[in-house]
Design a protein around this nucleic acid. Structure first.
Lengths: 241, 241
DNA sequence: ACCTGAACACCGTTCAAGT
DNA sequence: ACCTGAACACCGTTCAAGT
């Protein structure tokens, strides 16, 4: 489980006196807290309480709460395998963001942690690597593959955050039903007949598929006519939209 | 500017004694606070201070902080025109989410408010209406158009939130450059040569276009071969991924 | 009906002190 | 090196009281 300190600062080089505390133990306790009671339950004081220690003791292991949050997020993510080894690039991306999503659902606090203060450092590099390889294997240029990665990760996190809300936040279908009364001039919204319960899995799969269809369509639009440089596959630099 | 009280509870039916306070004034002050100092600066106490009153006085106008946040979000959104009256459905959607995005950039606290506690009630109905109409005009069924709406709104909010961070949170390009050293086995990530500054506008336009390309491609995939019901255009119910 | 004042149960963090 | 204890400057909210 490799001791990679996110800050890289004060790694205890010898065998730490007698592990009453320690970064790893604190992170484990923090994850338990988040999983059981939500991201808001992870406070310095609550964590100190959970491990039977004074709040200030934590500052020997984390320089701030932000540092703690980043460490928790990184620990959760570092255990995941985003590369599904699929031959098909579409399956590869589907797998990758399925893993991201499952991580978020298993640890409901994760999206909140990632959005916090920009507490995700090298954290997103795993999914990014898989995505860039998959897209560039289809001939997409660097800039556009990074943009597409942001599209995929943004969508995935926002949907997972929505689904994993502490109080289920009204499922979309019920939300619509409840508020529909107030709707004025919202014909299309009022006309909707939603299923009794929202199928988040199917909805997410649909969204990713649609994006991947968009990738294929976008590639077809830019390549057949205007591929000026015939040599390497890393051509097609610009092209806004 | 219509007196629509979000809660619908205690609307002061007569002309309010002498408007020292009032929901509208408080909302205006709250927006100013959020715009100037970020979403975190909007606290009950700070708002009370800004209008020269005791914190508890606010509870005569809002039942809780959540209620206040919802009112602020709704006021910001209610002033926007999401329907650009474009004939082309793609332009229509582009305009709609461009407006959402501009709202978020002009009021940096907005994405935070919307993600909060599910504080967006009928708030999303404007963009939803425009999107559903546009998509259904292309023959997309109800379920899929709602799913696509969630894709569009999720992407838009996540990108705007990222861009509008209090401290610019490291632009993507710089983030990559800074962290690249630590990257192990992230070949594609390390190989990236990003432009000196990230063009958020172009990136967003690319993302929306890609999604719309995906909409067209998805429609083509489901209609030509397998349209079992020839009658109405609201066919093609299922089709997972 | 609207506002004040004191208080409660929380936060993250600093500082000085112990061992 | 690691932990404690008291304190500071904050939160949202309740409760009792004023007008």
């Amino acid at each position: 489980m490799a001791k990679q300190t996110a800050t890289g600062k004060r790694r205890p080089r010898s065998g730490m006196k007698r592990g009453v505390l320690s970064r790893d133990k604190l992170i484990a306790a923090a994850i338990e807290l988040v999983d059981d009671e939500g991201a808001d339950a992870l406070t310095i004081r609550a964590l100190a309480d959970a491990v039977g220690v004074t709040p200030m003791a934590l500052y020997n292991h984390f320089s701030s709460k932000r540092d703690l949050l980043a460490a928790v997020a990184e620990h959760i993510i570092s255990g995941a395998q985003f590369d599904g080894q699929h031959a098909d690039w579409r399956e590869q991306i589907h797998h990758c963001f399925g893993v991201v999503r499952n991580l978020c659902l298993r640890h409901p606090g994760l999206p909140g942690l990632l959005e916090q203060d920009g507490a995700a450092p090298g954290t997103a590099f795993g999914p990014m690597e898989v995505t860039l390889r998959a897209l560039q294997s289809q001939g997409m240029n660097e800039l556009d593959s990074v943009r597409t990665f942001f599209l995929l990760i943004g969508y995935t996190l926002s949907q997972a955050a929505y689904q994993a809300r502490p109080v289920p936040a009204l499922e979309p279908s019920e939300k619509i039903r409840t508020e529909r009364i107030a709707g004025r001039g919202y014909g299309a919204v009022e006309r909707i007949e939603m299923p009794p319960t929202w199928d988040f899995d199917a909805s997410f799969a649909f969204g990713i598929s649609l994006i991947l269809n968009g990738v294929e369509a976008t590639a077809q639009k830019s390549s057949p006519g205007g591929d000026q440089r015939p040599s390497r596959r890393r051509s097609a630099r610009k092209e806004g939209n």
